[in-house]
Amino acid sequence: MNAAVENYLMPGGSASITALPKVSLHDHLDGGLRPHTIVELAGEIGYELPETDPAKLTTWFAEQADSGSLVHYLRTFDVTIAVMQTADNLRRVAREFVQDLADDGVIYGEVRWAPEQHLQQGLDLDQAVSAAQGGLEEGVDLVRASGRSIRVGQLITSMRQTDRSREIAELAIRHRDLGVVGFDSAGPEAGFPSSLARDAYDLLAHNFLPTTVHAGEAAGLDSIRSALFDGRALRLGHGVRLAEDITTAREDDENTYVSLGDLAQWVKDREIALELSPSSNLQTGAIEQWGDVMIDHPFDLLYQLGFRVTVNTDNRLMSATSLSRELFLLSEAFGYDLTDLEIFQINAAAAAFLPIEEREALSEAISVGFERA
């Protein structure tokens, strides 16, 4: 077990959030490495780290990521990607990733990563995907050997700034029966709307491979609109700035008027899941127009208005977090109870890139787990 995975309890109660069954939809492979693994792998390849003590390296990642800028936040990935350039290293990182998810109570996880960033030591795209899949499967086997259960799938990510979206879409389609469950687009959001990769999204749609798109994090409503209508997105990666399309006005001490714009209404009515990552959203400045502490996050507004909100970590290393910690922080800020936390997990199960029968079974497993809490 990874000692960094802590046991989080409900605020003011004894129920263990960590022990509850959970679904993780937005979690980057290169954002979830164990610090001591980075130190070991960097030593093997002679890569110079900013800190060689795992504890100090953990602090370095958190400090660098907590910048209020997505651009600065993304620079921390130079370190993690550098040690993920061989098949063996990809397998190890993926294996440990799954074990850490299971230690945090995750029973279904979608693992997103960009294979195009892992070709510096001779791997081709297909070899990289196969290596990661091998590690994921090893992790699942180790979890099962410990008497627990977890299922994972790959989300193949294209980096929107590299103009390789069509090639990466074809890669995802080739591996759809070999562990890949969907497609993602990430990287700098401003200046790179989904319309620039429309041919890739058309190809994915024609092959019935579902997509999620990073949108509404570093850019606003136009980015979300393009993700939905050019990117055919079934989920929004973050999507937090959809709250810009919601108007609230206090009528008196007891009543508040709320109005949804056309885009927000569309997302709500279609039950398009929002992959919200509270700590990350604070770190990158995605919610700066509303504030800079957890209670300022529009998560609760979106939840109370009936949007399909889900809770995610984004990058566990950079945000020094876990899914249980994110749920704890939200419960602490907004007074959520176990019923609320169960709804968040049911929302995630309903939005998972799985056949409907398997989504229903996942929801049932979540309900049973919460009943026992």
Score class of each variant (00 low, 15 high):
residue 2 N to D: 15
residue 3 A to N: 09
residue 10 M to K: 11
residue 11 P to C: 01
residue 15 A to H: 04
residue 28 H to W: 03
residue 30 D to C: 06
residue 31 G to I: 00
residue 32 G to P: 08
residue 35 P to F: 00
residue 36 H to Q: 08
residue 42 A to F: 13
residue 46 G to Y: 02
residue 47 Y to C: 01
residue 48 E to W: 00
residue 50 P to M: 11
residue 64 Q to A: 09
residue 71 V to L: 13
residue 74 L to R: 01
residue 76 T to H: 02
residue 86 T to H: 09
residue 88 D to Y: 01
residue 89 N to K: 04
residue 95 R to V: 03
residue 101 L to A: 14
residue 117 Q to T: 01
residue 118 H to G: 09
residue 132 A to K: 04
residue 132 A to H: 01
residue 132 A to Y: 10
residue 143 V to Q: 01
residue 143 V to P: 09
residue 145 A to V: 00
residue 152 V to H: 07
residue 164 R to S: 09
residue 167 E to R: 06
residue 168 I to W: 01
residue 169 A to D: 05
residue 176 R to L: 01
residue 177 D to A: 04
residue 177 D to W: 02
residue 182 G to I: 09
residue 190 A to P: 03
residue 191 G to M: 06
residue 191 G to H: 07
residue 201 Y to R: 04
residue 202 D to S: 08
residue 205 A to D: 04
residue 207 N to Q: 14
residue 211 T to W: 01
residue 214 H to S: 09
residue 214 H to P: 13
residue 219 A to T: 04
residue 220 G to V: 00
residue 221 L to I: 04
residue 225 R to E: 10
residue 227 A to C: 15
residue 233 A to P: 15
residue 239 G to D: 09
residue 242 L to K: 00
residue 246 I to Y: 06
residue 251 E to S: 07
residue 254 E to S: 06
residue 262 D to Q: 02
residue 266 W to S: 05
residue 274 L to G: 08
residue 276 L to Q: 15
residue 282 L to I: 15
residue 285 G to M: 15
residue 287 I to R: 10
residue 287 I to G: 14
residue 296 D to K: 13
residue 296 D to P: 10
residue 303 Y to H: 12
residue 307 F to V: 10
residue 310 T to A: 14
residue 322 S to P: 15
residue 322 S to K: 11
residue 326 E to M: 10
residue 333 A to I: 13
residue 333 A to G: 08
residue 334 F to D: 01
residue 335 G to R: 00
residue 339 T to H: 14
residue 339 T to D: 15
residue 339 T to Y: 14
residue 340 D to F: 01
residue 343 I to E: 13
